[in-house]
Amino acid sequence: MTDPVLRIENLTVEIRTRTGVAPVIDDLSFRVDTGRTLALVGESGCGKSMTALAIMGLLPRGIGRIVRGSILLGAEDLATTSPARMRSIRGNEIGMIFQEPMTSLNPVYSVGEQISEVLRAHQGMGRKAAWSMAIELLDAVHIPNPSLRVSDYPFQMSGGQRQRVMIAIALACRPRVLIADEPTTALDVTVQAQIFDLLKDLQRDTGTAIILITHDMGAVTEMADEMIVMYAGRMAEAGPVEAVISRPRHPYTRGLISCVPHLGAIVDDDRPLLTEIPGIVPGLGQFGQDRCLFASRCELSDSHCRSARPAAYAITDGHSAACWQAGGAA
């Protein structure tokens, strides 16, 4: 196996709210390898974006902070590195694209300026060189007429094109890791497929490791090699996509899968009929309690689930689930 490019170990991030401090990420560990894609899955409010921001060193100032664990990029721990060093890593060794292509680009600068700026900041390029590199990058993300479009402003582009520009910015410096936080949620279905194809092509060319954040199980099977299902800031289930999708052990994973019709068929005999998980993700105030946080929504839960936090239980090589019932059902 190759060396992991990014290794998250026992990461705990606390957020300060009006009512107190809550672990929005609670003892999370995972790794991503060069050229591979890891999917981070879970409903809204599970802490997926917080995980991404923690890796980027962009946790909301004065509100979120890393209290335990490490974020190892190669041998360097990003959790303890200096802000200046972090700036030279962001956009350079780790790139990120966001959910909202319509608002993620600055409306008052041309896309060429916004792409070349990152090259000037990290690659020491001059204006001219960065500008022609920006044209090449627009071409690489399949924007037609790149030498003309380079001086366009974001308002002159469609949502799909803007997300392509975001990808060009994020990959401009050939980062080792690309974090894509729900990159297609705001786009329509045909454009979604194009963006995913583009990401896969670029990954083949550059060997970038991708962390794909999504709540779309279809996108996971399409894109990812490994996956982590997150619930209320904790890992619920993790493993190779194929194994997790075909033999999900955590009731939450089963619920997520059964929401998708064509995926649901695969696990039909393994799970009770259930098309939707009842209830909602608990609020931040309940994060961190010593119990299974999914228990209140789980039909398999018993008193044990409600009194102790389940540890990760290894099922097969690389596949594990944090569920008291998963062990028993094995």
């Binding site: 980027m56 962009l58 972090m86 700036r87 030279s88 890593i89 962001r90 956009g91 350079n92 790139g95 990120m96 966001f98 909202e100 608002t103 993620s104 680009l105 600055n106 409306p107 008052v108 600068y109 700026e117 990152v118 900041a121 990290h122 975001m166 910015i169 994020a170």
Partner: peptide, 25 residues
Amino acid sequence: SDYIRTAEAKGLGNTKVVYKHALKN
């Protein structure tokens, strides 16, 4: 706003983020 987060994610310094990206808007 989102584009300020983008500017930060690019690894730009504080001065660039505040005076170039925020102020002009």
